[in-house]
Design a binder for these strands. Sequence first.
DNA 1: TGATAATCGAGACGGTACGTCGTGTCTTTCA
DNA 2: TGAAAGACACGACGTACCGTCTCGATTATCA
Lengths: 192, 192, 192, 192
Amino acid sequence: MPNAARRSERSRQAILESALALLHESGYADLTIEAIAARAGVGKQTIYRWWSGRGAVVLDALVEQAGASEPPPLPDTGDLEADLRPVIRAIVAELADPRLSATTRALTVEALTSETFAEQVRDRLLRPQLGTIVARLRSAREAGDLRADADLDQAVELLIGPMYHRWMLRTGPLTEEYADGLLDLALAALRR
Amino acid sequence: MPNAARRSERSRQAILESALALLHESGYADLTIEAIAARAGVGKQTIYRWWSGRGAVVLDALVEQAGASEPPPLPDTGDLEADLRPVIRAIVAELADPRLSATTRALTVEALTSETFAEQVRDRLLRPQLGTIVARLRSAREAGDLRADADLDQAVELLIGPMYHRWMLRTGPLTEEYADGLLDLALAALRR
Amino acid sequence: MPNAARRSERSRQAILESALALLHESGYADLTIEAIAARAGVGKQTIYRWWSGRGAVVLDALVEQAGASEPPPLPDTGDLEADLRPVIRAIVAELADPRLSATTRALTVEALTSETFAEQVRDRLLRPQLGTIVARLRSAREAGDLRADADLDQAVELLIGPMYHRWMLRTGPLTEEYADGLLDLALAALRR
Amino acid sequence: MPNAARRSERSRQAILESALALLHESGYADLTIEAIAARAGVGKQTIYRWWSGRGAVVLDALVEQAGASEPPPLPDTGDLEADLRPVIRAIVAELADPRLSATTRALTVEALTSETFAEQVRDRLLRPQLGTIVARLRSAREAGDLRADADLDQAVELLIGPMYHRWMLRTGPLTEEYADGLLDLALAALRR
DNA sequence: TGATAATCGAGACGGTACGTCGTGTCTTTCA
DNA sequence: TGAAAGACACGACGTACCGTCTCGATTATCA
């Protein structure tokens, strides 16, 4: 096992940047280890030394990207639906854009392939990203706007799951109206 | 383009059966065209002549399997939640079993890769399978148990989406309690 | 094991020609399977399917080359030394030229590496090439010019061995004078 | 260029010993710089600092080994053939043993690859080792047992060359009888 | 019913990427 | 401050599949 202390930071960053660039330019199917190495000016072995495969590289790249800018907490105006609407709309908009959703596509494929990878995605990307929503829901529950017994993780799933499903299987349009409707529906289930 | 009239039925079936068998035995990653051809005792060209790739083979295999036994309509006892509960539990149970959900895993990966493939899955597998649920919801809406303006497709997504999400990203257990809780939650949103 | 009947003659020849060309252009150290495949416009697997490695390719290429022109028998003027002199000079001249001896260099390296390869070289290249010398020595023995008990294979080795040794270890010049001197010396040992 | 005065004698010996050990255990193909360094408990750079490659290491190792015990001069009983017979037999026996001849194999491969390496082998190993034979031949020539014009280096080649050739290309057995026969034949060429 | 045309099993083909190995250089850490 | 340790860029290895392509050898209609 390699000695992390001696790791080349320059190579690490070049690899992560190259992976993201290639992912956006050519999609996940064309994202090969060889292409990443070539673009990063790095030997393949340097990738295999520190990552288990292209999925792991992409995950790290996205975590790095996300970690750079901690998401600000959602506003709490007292109106839960109004506070959540922009986030839901933003997520739907991202899914609607094939370029922006390329990373999500890649992660989902990899998560479906490897159990441990799924857990990594969940813990390192999903939870942090959805954390602000959970926080806002918690404050709403404390304010008595939601059922006192509401499971917040399940509540987020009720918001997120349907749109992912629609996105993956193209069962309907991913529009602002859809986002608003879904939010309305989900909150109807959660309110007292 | 090949002449479908002269197609060998024996080969067609051997290929579909081999694909499903390999999928269950070794998972989607090891499901190669060469492996299918070898197990089916068939030339690779015979596969490429009639299908566009492994995804198309698997899809056909599953459609064939599903089509063999048309699903019976759900009972309509007047109690919507009671009528739906067994189906929801069954779907959750299938997702909880890695063997049974291998096919879903495969289809989802392929749907994430190809737009047209996603549409095929939606139209030829998903809609038929979820049709019984839609039918039962429709009867409930007519009976005044659901909001009159309820969008039935969206309603199904509200039931199905969260559990798929949980399954893919392992965000929680896939148990009978979960199934019941999800159903309860979704119906809360849909009822008048 | 592959079916030789379906083998592509075009590829076979392109591979052998590329191997020889590369060997002369860049030497044995740079003669890689990848380079041969690239120059021949052939997949690597096509080489590995029919040969065990670069040594086997080179051997086949040389056997093919040699087989194209069956060497004419040596003249038999009655003067053994005069009849042999041109051949010995030619062999020495070939060894003296780094370009021409590149193939011999390659084969020798490979022969030193693999026992079975050495036997292949011996049987398919060396023996045919030295056959004419053996034939001339036999006729000389029958004419009473050589010792009646002379072992002809050993006799050839006495001629060939010293010059190979000198060539490999650079223990002296490889000139016409050397060739003549060696022939003189060897025949002194073999004559009655 | 490194400062030889500060060189670690301990490392130097560990490297040479490891090289020889690995050569005997696994053959020349598996003798890599990495393996030598690992077994010697030495950094790769320490090898590259003082040697140009594995060939140079092996050569040094063998020179060291040979230099440890200066070979005693051959006896001079007046009977040249009797005095030479044990040495020739010994060389043939060494070549016949794959273990013992592993080093010769390695050196020959390397000599075929690099011109300057060949000269090193010739000057530092071959000449010293064959020096005793040359000396005995010289005394024989002075005693009038050999032709007065005999070139002693060529004479040694006449003895050594054929057996190396036989060894490399497996053109015949390497037995005591062969050794005796070769000696007989060579001396026949050299005697007055 | 025998000719003829397509499909079939088989598998070789040119390619691409894989993941591993060894090279020779460069960098960090320690005695 | 020199050597151990080993990460690095590089490039070849031999393998696995890809999707295309030729082969006879069955079929299975139509002349």
